[in-house]
Design a protein around this nucleic acid. Structure first.
Lengths: 250, 250
DNA sequence: CGGTAACGTACGGCATTATAGAACATCGTT
DNA sequence: AACGATGTTCTATAATGCCGTACGTTACCG
């Protein structure tokens, strides 16, 4: 299974450009590669036709083309979990009508980094950039549950289990049991533990290095969404989480 | 002087990846290109060996590689005007609180090569590397208006004046009149022609050879910025454009 | 103004090189 | 255990890319 010479040569040409040598003409490239002028000419014209190199005018020296910029930023985007997750959040929110959040762990709290409002229920207490307690939210539980044990220990050390509602878990050992449950279930639930009348679920997002990247949650109003319907939402949420993780290279 | 088939095919593979499909496996690529599995295998392994595509593990789907990111950044830096313009863009964005873009012409579209987010208004539809229509954006109009007449003619020949909003200019002769206006004004305006609720202005950046290098635009949300304020922004934008051009040796 | 470099471009025969068929391997599934 | 779907390797063939040569241009200098 030999590699393809013509392609190797073409790609190697792209490597010749550097910060020091931004522009190269045919003769220079010929000298650097040892390839014949006419051989190079075909290669260069092919690269040029595809936008990988360009010249300001005919017979001007070549330089790297815009196509590389375009493709390069696509790479960056595809590695950016917020951008990757966005369309999936929108899709989930649209299908379910519920509000969907994307959050990451930051010290002893979670932070919402993205949010898509649902049409059916309006959750007003959240906002992008807002911090939320770990122990009262589904997304917080997920974000902590899948951390390394050392991180969990350090986070819970001296943690303030302030009660938000009568359902809030306020004891450390009970909370640790809840985290264990999250790990085995693969998702977390917030049963009116943060806001009365609000039931949420959350799932993890995994990165290409198999480490936790973020979490996605879906928020429902208990009067609007039956328990059966909520269970169906969890399944959809899990599918969404898996899709985002896959796109991130998991 | 025919173009080189193997190189064309290899580069076309890179084009298949998109924001929607960041990962592709051999079978999918085979289906999309109509090429034989074994033919593709050689091409893919060549691209992979050079870092233009990669896979997380053996037999995993392919995605674009880091080499593209590296080369893409080089393109950005190799256009020295980007580095020169950067501090001016930041300054303008900070003073006005608006989002500022730097773009160049590439074929029949513009490409954003740099961007500074404003604090007052958040414009999310744009991204570095993204292509934009010429006829719906202020920056596009500037980029075309100051080209040589032959270039303008060739660009508009067969140009697709697709409508983005109800304000989009969809007729060639009207657009040519708009370009003439841009030339006499020295700046272009996009009055909600690309995105509803978004008003932009753009000015040219001139190089040492007195040729058009790029354009800078400022984007505002109509509800946030009054027309009087917008006119003041145009003045500041013009000053910024002049400063960058001067730094480039104009 | 003519001669001559230097450079990019086009042509065409030859043989290397890429191609695609088929067979092989490696999963995951029923 | 047999199957299907996937990726990999092998090999013969001829198509393809390679490079020597020759042709336009443009730029520079005598």
């Amino acid at each position: 299974m030999p590699l393809i010479q013509a392609v190797e040569r073409a790609l190697n040409i792209l490597e010749l450009f550097s910060e020091q040598k931004v522009e190269l003409n045919l003769a220079e490239i010929s000298h650097m590669t040892g390839l014949h002028k006419s051989t190079l000419h075909s290669l260069l014209k092919t690269l040029q036709a595809q936008g990988y190199i360009e010249q300001t005018e005919a017979n001007a020296p070549y330089r790297l083309g815009m196509k590389l910029l375009e493709r390069g930023y696509l790479v960056q985007r595809s590695r950016d979990f917020v951008a990757v997750a966005r369309p999936y959040l929108e899709d989930l929110s649209e299908r379910t009508g519920q509000t969907v959040h994307l959050g990451v762990l930051d010290g002893k709290a979670g932070v919402y980094v993205d949010k898509v409002e649902g049409t059916r229920s309006i959750i007003v207490y959240s906002r992008i950039g807002r911090r939320m307690p770990i122990h009262t939210t589904a997304i917080g539980k997920v974000l902590l549950a899948f951390q390394a044990p050392a991180v969990i220990g350090k986070t819970l050390d001296g943690y303030d289990f302030a009660a938000s509602t009568e359902n809030t878990i306020t004891q450390c050992d009970l909370f640790e049991a809840a985290l264990a449950r999250v790990r085995s279930d693969g998702f977390a639930v917030d049963e009116q533990e943060n806001v009365r009348g609000c039931r949420c679920a959350a799932v993890p997002i995994w990165g290409h290095d198999r480490k936790l990247v973020a979490a996605i949650s879906i928020s429902t109003v208990v009067e609007n969404v039956s328990m059966d319907e909520f269970k169906s939402l969890i399944e959809q949420l899990k599918a969404t989480g898996a899709s985002v993780s896959r796109d991130l290279g998991y």
